[in-house]
Each structure stands twice: as structure tokens, then as C-alpha cells.
């Protein structure tokens, strides 16, 4: 006899034992977009069998509070990443200033030109 009336209503003996293998289904990576116009951001995973079901579950696990514009799900198996040993490829040498807007400073040149030509 449980203190929980819900539990007393269950047929707890109705359990089929046995091994279970990966029965919690595959996982899906969930991306959450909080507002139209914003980037969807990775929020976590859900276990589900189909994209429809993954979306159903993602809605309750990742969108039950706050604002949501949309959710994306993608099979974990379909996501590719770099190996973390290759992290070094993201280090850029500091000389790559030609890609920075701040690198381009022509004001001095213009002023020199103006004073030289009395403009």
C-alpha cells in the first residue's frame, strides 16, 4: 500500500522483464529560435523515433517557458564536427588585419592631401 493514491491504482506487478537494447530511441539535436529574425540556437537533445515526434517532445522540453518562434530538430547522427585535436585550425595569425574594418584608416591621408592642396 503506497501513500500515493496514483501508485495504488497501478498494476505494479505487470512488468515484463528482459534485456532492453537502446529502447530509448535515437537522439535529436534541438535548436530553439526565440523570436522571428533571430538565429536558432542549440538547446539540447531529445530521444524520439521520428522528426515529428522529436518536435513534439522538443516543444515541451525546450519551449514550455518563455517565448518561442520555432524549433528545429536534426538527427544527432547527421551532425558533423571537427575533432577537438584540430582546434588549432581556428587560431589565425595576428597579421590578418586586412580582414578587419579597423585596419582601413584613410582619414590621415585625406587630411594630408587636403593641406597639401589647400582644399
Amino acid at each position: 500500500m503506497s501513500l500515493d493514491p496514483r501508485i495504488n491504482r497501478l498494476d505494479l506487478k505487470r512488468v515484463n522483464d528482459g534485456e532492453q537494447t537502446a529502447s530509448h530511441l535515437i537522439t535529436w539535436e534541438v535548436f530553439h529560435q526565440d523570436k522571428r529574425g533571430k538565429q536558432p540556437v542549440h538547446a539540447g537533445i531529445v530521444h524520439a523515433s521520428t522528426p515529428e515526434q522529436a518536435l513534439m517532445f522538443a516543444k515541451e522540453q525546450y519551449a514550455r517557458r518563455g517565448k518561442t518562434a520555432n524549433l528545429w530538430v536534426v538527427k544527432t547522427a547527421d551532425v558533423y564536427t571537427f575533432n577537438s585535436e584540430d582546434e588549432a585550425i581556428f587560431e589565425t595569425t595576428p597579421e590578418k588585419t586586412f580582414r578587419d574594418p579597423a585596419f582601413y584608416k584613410v582619414r590621415e591621408r585625406i587630411e594630408a592631401f587636403q593641406s597639401k592642396n589647400k582644399l
Binding site: 515484463n16 528482459g18 532492453q20 537502446a22 529502447s23 530509448h24 530511441l25 535515437i26 537522439t27 539535436e29 537533445i45 524520439a48 523515433s49 521520428t50 515526434q53 538527427k75 544527432t76 547522427a77 551532425v79 564536427t81
Partner: peptide
């Protein structure tokens, strides 16, 4: 367990989430 078994797609292989 019957619920999850019915949902399972045997062609899909579980991979470790990231």
C-alpha cells in the same frame, strides 16, 4: 517498454549525442 519498442526504427542506429 512495448511503447518504445513500437516506436523504434530498427534501421536507425543510436549514436552518442554531442
Amino acid at each position: 517498454r512495448w511503447v518504445r519498442e513500437a516506436l523504434m526504427n530498427p534501421k536507425e542506429k543510436y549514436v552518442t549525442p554531442m
